[in-house]
Design a protein around this nucleic acid. Sequence first.
DNA 1: AATACTACCTGCGTGC
DNA 2: TGCACGCAGGTAGTAT
Length: 278
Amino acid sequence: MPELPEVETVRKGLEKLVVGKTIKEVTILWPRIIESPVVEIFESQLIGQTIEKMERRGKFLIFKLTNYDMISHLRMEGKYETHDPEDQRDKHTHVIFTFTDGSELRYLDVRKFGRMVLVDKDQGTNYKGILALGPEPIPSQFKLNEFRLGLKKHHKAIKPLLLDQRLVTGLGNIYVDEALWEAKIYPEQPADTLKPKEVEGLSYAIIDVLGRAVEAGGTTIRSYLNALGEAGTFQISLNVYGQTNNPCPRCGTPIKKIKVAQRGTHFCPKCQTLKVRN
DNA sequence: AATACTACCTGCGTGC
DNA sequence: TGCACGCAGGTAGTAT
């Protein structure tokens, strides 16, 4: 479910709900969720740790603990919920953190793709998955010139390149389609064939779309995102994602859906056309 | 080195 | 109703 705006919404929710709480017990019901260290050590090291702060880098959540960083990636369907111990346990609950105040934080994940990693204090940013990330999609970090140079190094389609998180982090299948629509770029346009004006427009669109989605608390479709409670509202602002056959908000042409790098891809066949260059 | 493909999982909608 | 199949907000590992 989550791309950057949804993960940021979850981070804010956790900040309100679990910062200051101390872990008394950890129960792991699906061990593969824990990438490292081995589950027994993961559990024992967490006992007695207080959650001091909630951070985020790209789509990774970082729980800043007394003596460790706990990194959590929700992948497709991971989510966190707070509960009382007597609440009925959903079948997709895989990890339970019990706090000293008696409350619980539960990690649920229908497809079990999510992962957690425990590393030494303040070493979250040195975790390999986080080291590989490009800049956050904000003007102070996402620099046009570096983006242009990065795009020039690849001839592959722009959409899968943006999904791979190395040139900029945070986009997923929804927001990449939205950003490409906003920038009027065809999803299979080779990255190294974009003109400077297009690169600039794309850079702006990425920052704009993700920023607006963060403000909206993310997008809620099929799986009710719940940053510990509420759904996001960005779904009402989607221009192409999930809008197959609906009119393009700019020109009225029916939105088309194709497959690009095995992902469903929505675009306007009139506003976004392949430009033959080189 | 860059790119393409597959594995990891479950549930839901569709069509026969 | 049952069943096969494709699809779903993502990466990480492997092959070419």
